[in-house]
């Protein structure tokens, strides 16, 4: 049974974390960080699927490892690299290995990653992937054939970008995702509470738990990069200025304080947080305690 599902259905505020698998089979450092900083601190841990189209060890393998290490993974599946046969097959494999939560994503284009000449698949997309999961939960595959044992306990979620401009296409797609079977959302990074509040008002009619995405801004350079390159994300001056003013040694403390304040502002508007620490896992326990969501 998914603890994430239980918490969200009971209306309990839920915090999830995230791990980016390494390129290679040595996962000792990643597992150690997970044990030290995420265990007991977050309810579930997302495992990214060749994040940013950069080839790494797979999200299925790491999700299974996490299950055996006593974590609850959120297995991220993108549609970039696999067609409907491979994806359905992986969903069943994951279930067999104890994976219950899936985050269904379209996925970045291969041209953004480290194998830019790769052919992209996109046989399915986020909406049809959610439809696939719902179909399989009901004991059928996409061809309509009966499954010999259905993955009934799967709990599927999706992503949304609340800061997109215009936001209406995002809301329309969010609605399609809910209709296709999404039962929770983890959002792209948010830094503007007012914009998020407006988004949540519009998304309210869908009555679906939304975990606000928190990406710790580590430096002014990172903020600049996100503002230029990351779709639908804007880091305002209120965050950039204190970071610029801080010395390099003080930066982590200043960054964590800024993120904790942001989370306090966002908390009344959402049903949980999804913290993407991106290498700063060691600050996650402090961030959660300062934000008052422990």
């Amino acid at each position: 049974m998914s603890k994430l599902k239980e918490a969200l259905e009971a209306g309990t505020f839920a915090v999830t974390g995230e791990l980016g698998p390494p390129k290679g089979v040595n996962i000792a450092a990643m597992m150690e960080e997970a044990e030290k900083y995420l265990k007991g601190c977050v309810l579930a841990v997302n495992v990214t699927d060749n994040q940013s189209s950069v080839m790494r060890i797979g999200s299925l393998g790491i999700s299974a490892k996490l299950v055996s290490a006593g974590f609850e993974p959120v297995y991220q599946i993108t549609c970039r690299d696999r067609n409907r046969l491979a994806i359905q097959s992986d969903i069943l494999s994951g279930y067999l290995l104890g994976v219950r939560n899936i985050l269904a994503l379209t996925g970045d284009h291969p041209s953004l990653g480290d194998h830019p000449g790769a052919r992209c698949v996109f046989d399915l997309d986020s909406v049809s992937l959610l439809h696939t999961i719902a179909t399989m939960k009901n004991g059928k595959d996409l061809s309509g054939a009966d499954l010999q044992g259905a993955p009934k306990e799967l709990f599927a979620g999706a992503s949304v970008t609340p800061g997109a401009d215009p936001v209406e296409p995002q809301l329309l797609k969010m609605e399609k995702k809910v209709e296709a079977g999404a039962r929770f959302f983890q959002t792209q990074a948010i830094y503007e509470p007012a914009k998020f509040e407006k988004f949540m008002k519009a998304a309210g009619k869908l009555k679906i738990p939304v975990l606000a995405g928190i990406v710790i801004v580590k430096s002014p350079a990172m903020a600049k990069y996100m503002n230029e390159k990351v779709a639908g994300v804007f880091v305002p001056d209120e965050i950039i200025k204190p970071l610029s003013a801080a010395s390099k040694e003080d930066r982590p403390k200043v960054a964590i304080d800024l993120m904790a304040k942001l989370m306090k502002d966002l908390k009344p508007m959402c049903q949980g947080f999804h913290i993407m620490a991106m290498g700063w896992e060691k600050y996650v326990p402090e961030l959660i305690s300062k934000a008052g969501t422990a």
Binding site: D108, S111, D125, K173
Partner: peptide
């Protein structure tokens, strides 16, 4: 760029493609 049929992906930025 992804031949999507269910609406925009998360990569759209100021009306332009992530690619």
């Amino acid at each position: 760029a992804k031949n999507l049929i269910n609406g925009q992906c998360g990569g759209t930025h100021d009306g332009k493609c992530e690619v």
